[in-house]
């Protein structure tokens, strides 16, 4: 077996071992997601239109909720990783395995990406169940949806690693949500489109283009509701991928300093 195949096979086994753990928590996470979808989309789709919001707002929120499902996994994953570095330290075992150490971190990104992807996928049927006739599948582009789910998963995996490198210890874990995830999410177009923001405050809209989540939100809206009124889909995919590569590289550099691995 040549070395590249050996590394790929080891990566596959490492992912398999991690996914066995994820499998055990999958059912509980699905219930959590159903509660999240039912509450947000139910309120936005059925109650808020009575206060004057568009009747389509539930659909708009469904796309945002699907984009958010993976994003919300970042916090527990950062907690898990920082907890491991400070406590059980399985990462130090993995860093002595016969593969280049940076590949272990790439594997970690992939694992978090897979978790986010799986959880985002199940949001679509859950959302359809809640919105029922209000949400038409006619505009859904399955291919774009899959592309967006995978690219957003990779981005979330990279952000997880970056934040895990940034947080010094478990005592500082609370800041991850308040200082990073919440502003990224809330200013990332969960409740508004980029075009709407541009119409109100163009400078803010341009600044928001630095937020990777805006591209994920817009990408999911295009995939589920059509291109009209959203940023160009393939531009969103490209930017998300570029930002993922940048975040991954920076996270690996930072973790190399922190863990001092070979």
């Amino acid at each position: 077996m040549n070395q590249t195949n050996f590394y790929l096979q080891t990566m596959q086994h490492l992912l398999h071992a991690d996914l066995k753990t994820f499998k055990e928590s999958f059912f509980a996470k699905t219930i959590d997601l159903f509660i999240w979808v039912a509450c947000t989309i139910g309120v936005m789709g059925y109650i808020m239109p009575a206060l004057g919001l568009s009747t389509d707002y539930g659909n708009f929120q469904l796309a945002g909720s699907i984009a958010s499902a993976g994003l919300f996994e970042i916090f527990p994953h950062v907690m898990q990783m920082v907890g491991d570095i400070e406590g059980n330290n399985t990462i130090s075992y993995q860093l002595t395995l016969p593969v280049p150490s940076w590949l272990i971190l790439v594997k970690t990104i992939l694992y978090y990406a897979i978790c986010s992807t799986v959880l985002s996928i199940i949001m679509l049927p859950l959302g359809k169940l809640v919105l029922w006739n209000t949400f038409s599948l006619a505009h859904v582009s399955l291919m774009r949806f899959i592309v967006m789910i995978i690219t957003s998963g990779i981005l979330y995996g990279a952000i997880t690693l970056l934040l895990a490198a940034w947080v010094k210890n478990m005592a500082g874990i609370g800041h991850v949500w308040t200082r990073c995830i919440f502003p990224l999410w809330f200013l990332g177009g969960f409740q508004f489109s980029w075009a709407t923001l541009y119409g109100i405050a163009p400078t803010l809209a341009y600044m928001d283009l630095l937020n990777p989540i805006i591209y994920v939100m817009e990408g999911f809206r295009t995939a589920l509701l059509g291109q009209e009124g959203n940023l160009p889909f393939w531009a969103c995919v490209t930017v998300v991928l570029l930002m993922s590569v940048g975040a991954s590289w920076w996270a690996i550099v930072q973790l190399k300093k922190r863990l001092d691995f070979v």
Partner: peptide, 27 residues
């Protein structure tokens, strides 16, 4: 083979799985 001072097992895997994966990681 490296056995660190503090056990760093995959706590959510069974012992058997821990050993099986340890073998697979080494091809």
């Amino acid at each position: 083979g490296f056995c660190p001072q503090k056990p760093n097992l995959s706590l959510n895997l069974s012992l058997q799985d821990n050993l099986i994966f340890a073998g697979r990681f080494y091809g």
